[in-house]
Every structure is written in C-alpha cells, then in structure tokens.
C-alpha cells in the first residue's frame, strides 16, 4: 500500500443522544477506490457526514493527507480537499450547471477547467447552460460528480451514485468513475447498495453493519464469499445486483 490519503480511526458518531457509529476504522491510499457496503441504515451515509463534519457529533480521529480534520468545520474540511457527493445530489436549482461548477471551483480557489470535467463526464457539455431544476436524475448525478471534481479534491466521497438511475446511465457512470483516479489524481470511497457496481470498481471493500465495521477485505475475496454477502447484506448471490429501488 502506498501513502495514505485518509485514515479514519475509532470513529464514533451520534445524532442527538442516539449513537450511529461505533468506532469504525477506514484507510484509503492515494488514487485508491474502496467500497463502503452495508444494508440500508448500516451507517454508510453517516460515515461520510461524520468525515465532512455535517450534522452528527463525532469522536475519534480523521487524518486526511497528514492533517487531523475531525475538529474542523465542514467548509474547512472541504477546502482541504475532501469532496462529498450526497445521495440526493443537491444541485443548486436556481443556478446554471456552469454556475454550480464555478462555485465549487471558486470555493477551493481553483480555476474552473470545464474541458477536463467534460472529458471525465461527457454528457456535461450539453448541460452547462441549463438550470439545476431542469435536470433529470441521471444528469443531476453527472453534474454532482463534476461539481465535486471542479474543486480538484484529493478524496471523493460518493454516496449511492447509482440510486434511481437507468442501467444505461449506470454504465456511463461506471466508465466515468473508473477513469477518475488517474485523470484527477483522486481517491474514492464509494458507498453503494449496488454490489456488482462496487465490486467491479474497487480493490477493497468495507462492510458496515448497524454502525460497526463488520468486514474489511479485498473485493475479489468478498465477491467470492456468498456467505459473507448473505450474512452482511442479505444478498442471495453475487449475480443479484439489487438496485436501491428494491428496498
């Protein structure tokens, strides 16, 4: 394993008095893509929010590029190079796509390199003048990823990117994500219900179960262990790539 981009240690998180994460550890290397699996409510989104410093109260250490960030504000964490793509994408509806991208680039004091973003997310080109509220679900996902990349982050937290997308769009997304680490020099944590999608993109997976880290290992190993999949994800076999809509 090369130099670490992110090391999460003993991360605990609470919503009010309810504890949601119970001491989880995650490590991501430079340009590595790791999967974060788990049933609905297992704590995948909470993990991302805890890393970003959103909503939940948290304990533990989060070291990003040799800097302890667990006590920083959300905007400072973002400026240090962590980008978050939430499951509901949250594109600013009143702003054009170009404005959405420009905002993210400016927040991190980066020049907006539209060509580079279009290269990674081809459908972006025709969407640039449109307003956020005029986009379809798949288009919003594409813009959300492009917006996250516009600030040239070193770590991308992708939460449920395939949710609600048609198989064709999922395929395009797969190609985009596959190219990102090399093109953008970025590491990715991919939280997904779509097991096939994760296993085909990642080298290692973490599996959460009710806020605890239940499994950590190589994607190949997890792909071959139907027992583990059944136990942790209630998945019958590896060929059953369930979409989120089934839940």
């Amino acid at each position: 394993m090369t130099a670490k981009t992110l090391t999460v240690s003993h991360l605990e998180a609470w919503y009010g008095t309810a504890q949601a994460l119970f001491g989880i550890d995650i490590a991501v290397a430079e340009r590595e893509v790791v999967g974060l699996l788990g049933r609905n409510g297992a704590g995948k989104s909470t993990t991302f929010k805890a890393i970003m410093g959103i909503e939940a109260r948290r304990l533990g250490t989060i070291v990003f590029q040799d800097r302890e960030i667990s006590r920083l504000r959300t905007e400072t964490i973002a400026r240090s190079g962590v980008a978050w793509v939430p499951p509901d994408r949250r594109i600013f509806p009143a702003l054009s796509v170009r404005e959405n991208l420009a905002l993210a680039a400016r927040a991190r004091r980066q020049p907006l390199d539209v060509d580079r973003l279009v290269d990674a997310v081809p459908i972006l080109e025709r969407l640039l003048p449109r307003r956020g509220y005029q986009l379809s679900g798949g288009e919003k996902q594409a813009v959300a990823i492009a917006r996250a990349l516009a600030g040239k982050p070193r770590l991308l937290l992708l939460d449920e990117p395939t949710e609600g997308l048609s198989p064709l769009v999922v395929q395009q997304l797969h190609e985009s994500i596959l190219s990102l680490p090399a093109k953008f020099d970025v590491s990715i944590i991919l939280a997904e219900q779509n097991l096939q999608f994760v296993l085909s993109l990642t080298s290692r997976v973490y599996v959460l179960d009710t806020g605890r880290m239940a499994h950590e290992g190589s994607s190949t190993e997890f792909a071959n262990s139907t027992g583990l999949q059944h136990q942790l994800l209630s998945v019958a076999s590896t060929s059953d790539s369930r979409s989120h809509a089934d839940h």
Binding site: I54, E55, E75, R79, A83, F92, P93, A94, L95, L103
Partner: peptide, 17 residues
Amino acid sequence: QTTRAVAHDQTMARALG
C-alpha cells in the same frame, strides 16, 4: 451565486467549501 447557493442549501454550500 454564492448567496443563492447558501440560501437554497446551506449544508451543501458548506460541503463545497
């Protein structure tokens, strides 16, 4: 632009930095 972004979704705006 920033104002409209913050107005609509303060959390996302902050998460962008």
